[in-house]
């Protein structure tokens, strides 16, 4: 601090203190309940947290999430580009797809794919025909339902991203003799990523949780594995806690991954890289201490 700097008495904020006190009381009450209510059965939670069946379920949930999201992203880009096509049939087809898959509940779609064999007992033409029952296992049905549904949502996200890129960028590419495909791939999509990534992170997190719906077609994901265990030992709450904590852990990991991906695609837009959460926390701590931050 320099000798000429203003040394004022900080303004008082009694409202903030009251709010903080209320939050503190609630925190204590929650912590008290969590630790003293024996029905949480934390020992059972600990017992099953790393059990093989739960871990198998977790692995399956992760597989479903990754594969379905991959299908969703690829399909989404394709549908978004189709939607922006000058050919009315091509853009109309994309519109129809989005309308159909966004307009029906994903749970219904899961059940539909699971029962698709009732509609098409054989898949293929002539000699290359397969029994649909062998082809569409519950896992495949789950992947199809989640991936195709996700494609519809991703299409809208990608389209918003493409439209967010200034038209001058495409024009500059065209003026250099680049083809429409080259412009899309090299100029527009990379810049659309800044708009596409944050909602896609949301979608991935949402997908992780939506996969729990596949328990209705007896795919032994994380939730269904927990259900199978508590249907035998009746420890319902602890096993739901096991599943919930795993969902929370993976969601947290996904959020951290999302942050770094956003930072990567934002690097040309911000001067220098954004601070990481740790740096931000330190900054806030330091500025609160020295109170150089203006009160907003």
């Amino acid at each position: 601090m320099r000798p000429d700097d203003i040394q004022a008495i900080p303004a008082r904020h009694p409202g903030r203190w009251i709010a903080a006190a209320a939050v503190f009381v609630l925190l204590i009450a929650t912590a008290y309940s969590l630790t003293t209510n024996p029905r949480f059965e934390w020992s059972v939670v600990g017992e099953y947290f790393f059990s093989v069946r739960i871990l198998h379920g977790l692995l399956l949930t992760l597989e479903l999430t990754v594969i379905s999201m991959a299908i969703g992203v690829v399909l989404g880009v394709l549908l978004a580009v189709m939607r922006l096509s000058h050919n009315p049939l091509v853009s109309g087809a994309s519109w129809f797809y989005i309308w159909l898959f966004r307009g029906t509940p994903v749970l219904v779609q899961i059940l539909f794919w699971f029962n698709i064999t009732a509609l098409y007992p054989n898949i293929g033409i002539g000699a290359f025909s397969f029994d649909a029952n062998n082809l569409i296992t519950p896992f495949v049905a789950a992947i199809l339902a989640l991936g195709l549904n996700e494609g519809a949502y991703m299409a809208e996200i990608v389209r918003a991203g493409i439209l967010s890129v200034d038209e001058g960028q495409s024009e500059a590419g065209a003026a250099l003799g680049m083809s429409r495909l080259q412009i899309m791939r090299r100029v527009v999509l990379p810049q659309a990523m800044r708009v596409i990534v944050p909602p896609t992170g949301n979608e991935a997190i949402s997908m992780l949780k939506t996969t729990s719906l596949v328990s209705v077609i007896a795919v032994s994901d994380l939730l269904y594995s927990a259900q199978l265990i508590y249907s035998v030992n009746y420890r319902t709450i602890p096993l739901l806690l096991v599943a919930s904590i795993w969902y929370l852990l993976v969601t947290t990991l996904l959020s951290i991954g999302q942050f770094y991906i956003e930072r990567h695609f934002g690097r040309s837009a911000t001067r220098g890289a954004q601070p990481t959460p740790l740096q931000r926390l330190l900054d806030r701590f330091m500025s609160a201490r020295t109170s150089t931050r203006p009160n907003l």
Binding site: Q169, A172, A175, S179, V187
Partner: peptide
């Protein structure tokens, strides 16, 4: 389209708002 691209590749253009590719 291919021939139009070939034509444009031989004519340079500079825009009022520069239109440099922002991610490069």
């Amino acid at each position: 389209d291919r021939d139009i691209c070939r034509h444009r590749a031989e004519v340079g253009m500079v825009f009022q708002r520069f239109n440099l590719f922002g991610h490069m």
